[in-house]
Computed example of a mutant assay.
Amino acid sequence: MSALLATFATTAATPTVAALGLAIGVVLALTGAGGGILAVPALVFGAGLGMADAGPIGLLAVGMAASLGALLGLKAGIVRYKAALLVAGAGIVCSPLGLWLAQRTPNRPLSFVFALVLLYVAWRTWRRAHPHVAAADDAAAASLHAARAAARRAPPCRLDAGRGKLVWTAPCARALAVSGLLAGALSGLLGVGGGFVMIPALQRYTDLAMQSVVATSLAVIALVSLSGVAASAASGHLQWAVALPFSAGAMAGMVAGRAIGGQLAGPRLQQAFALLSAAVAAALMARSVL
């Protein structure tokens, strides 16, 4: 009887879960893979899941979105696939540790940590959404790059313009591997793709163009996220009854979001995403302390 009731409850909740996935898919399409950070809070508040249970399902949605972006980047030839494989390999090694910690950490402190990460993402998005702030950041980055060039300093990972490939050195491999370890740990612990770690890391440690940075980051996110989903499924911690309708809704939302993206894209959309992220972070913090 209890199994029958559980099956009925899951079936009844399927439309709600699919609708949540649809909303997250639209956000992913409009804001990029970073928008997937809202998948976990959506499952927590909308489907009543705990953080540890929502994480792998959120990873599945983020991984699917990042896979699409990475495939487009590979087709365009702007993914530095060796760097992506190194970073993702380090992330995949560390992701199970994050999953292990998530399953053994009480829900409230885990929610609070996630809220802090979400606030950081909201702050960065808000800053970049203001044209004068973005221009100032770009000018500061250009100035720093010029100063480093004048001092004959270079990031550890440099692009060979002739071959179109990174020049591999021990400092380069070490910097990228450490970045991957951090992204993997956060991916397993919080169910986030880690794009807010990877993009700044690739900007700092390489001299790749921004298009290549984003595409390579998406490849890393896809590999790490999907490996985390596989590990969670193998350990029996992935609720397929929720994951499948949520993922189906997310894919439908991505298609719809891409269709309307041209009309809605711009600074206002990024500001709205930042405000929504901050509001969700505040709700998570309140939930974790009350």
Results as ranks from 00 to 15, higher is better:
residue 219 A to N: 04
residue 22 L to F: 15
residue 250 A to Y: 00
residue 245 P to S: 14
residue 217 S to W: 07
residue 30 L to Y: 09
residue 113 V to C: 11
residue 191 G to A: 09
residue 80 R to Y: 15
residue 269 L to V: 05
residue 55 G to Y: 01
residue 17 V to T: 09
residue 232 S to H: 10
residue 137 D to E: 15
residue 247 S to N: 09
residue 35 G to K: 01
residue 173 A to L: 14
residue 73 G to M: 08
residue 192 V to T: 02
residue 191 G to V: 02
residue 218 L to K: 02
residue 179 S to K: 00
residue 86 L to A: 08
residue 127 R to G: 15
residue 144 L to N: 14
residue 163 R to S: 15
residue 44 V to D: 03
residue 6 A to T: 10
residue 42 A to Y: 02
residue 170 A to V: 12
residue 141 A to G: 08
residue 242 V to D: 09
residue 73 G to W: 09
residue 66 A to R: 03
residue 202 L to C: 03
residue 131 P to L: 12
residue 107 N to T: 13
residue 26 V to D: 13
residue 26 V to W: 08
residue 76 A to K: 09
residue 16 T to V: 09
residue 274 A to R: 05
residue 206 T to S: 00
residue 249 G to Q: 02
residue 121 V to K: 07
residue 283 A to H: 07
residue 217 S to M: 04
residue 58 G to M: 00
residue 41 P to C: 08
residue 176 L to K: 05
residue 287 R to F: 01
residue 4 L to V: 15
residue 276 L to G: 02
residue 68 L to E: 10
residue 143 S to V: 15
residue 144 L to P: 00
residue 30 L to K: 00
residue 233 A to H: 06
residue 59 L to N: 03
residue 128 R to D: 13
residue 261 G to D: 10
residue 48 G to C: 05
residue 15 P to F: 11
residue 80 R to D: 14
residue 236 G to K: 12
residue 22 L to M: 12
residue 175 A to P: 06
residue 80 R to K: 13
residue 185 A to I: 06
residue 257 G to M: 11
residue 59 L to E: 06
residue 220 V to T: 04
residue 260 I to E: 01
residue 72 L to G: 11
residue 235 S to D: 09
residue 50 G to F: 04
residue 23 A to Y: 00
residue 244 L to Y: 04
residue 258 R to V: 06
residue 29 A to W: 05
residue 16 T to N: 01
residue 4 L to T: 10
residue 189 L to Y: 15
residue 169 T to W: 05
residue 255 V to Q: 12
residue 188 G to H: 00
residue 103 Q to I: 07
residue 229 V to H: 05
residue 105 T to G: 07
residue 10 T to V: 13
residue 176 L to I: 09
residue 74 L to H: 01
residue 238 L to M: 09
residue 232 S to Y: 02
residue 64 M to T: 06
residue 148 R to I: 13
residue 206 T to L: 01
residue 194 G to E: 08
residue 252 A to S: 07
residue 245 P to A: 11
residue 107 N to L: 02
residue 180 G to L: 02
residue 286 A to I: 10
residue 232 S to N: 12
residue 111 S to N: 14
residue 153 R to Q: 13
residue 59 L to M: 09
residue 18 A to N: 05
residue 200 P to N: 07
residue 81 Y to V: 12
residue 67 S to F: 09
residue 207 D to A: 05
residue 245 P to I: 07
residue 4 L to Q: 13
residue 216 T to V: 03
residue 142 A to W: 11
residue 79 V to D: 08
residue 21 G to D: 02
residue 281 A to S: 06
residue 133 V to S: 14
residue 180 G to T: 10
residue 120 Y to P: 04
residue 166 L to C: 13
residue 8 F to R: 13
residue 45 F to K: 02
residue 121 V to W: 01
residue 132 H to D: 14
residue 52 A to S: 15
residue 281 A to N: 00
residue 119 L to K: 05
residue 267 P to A: 11
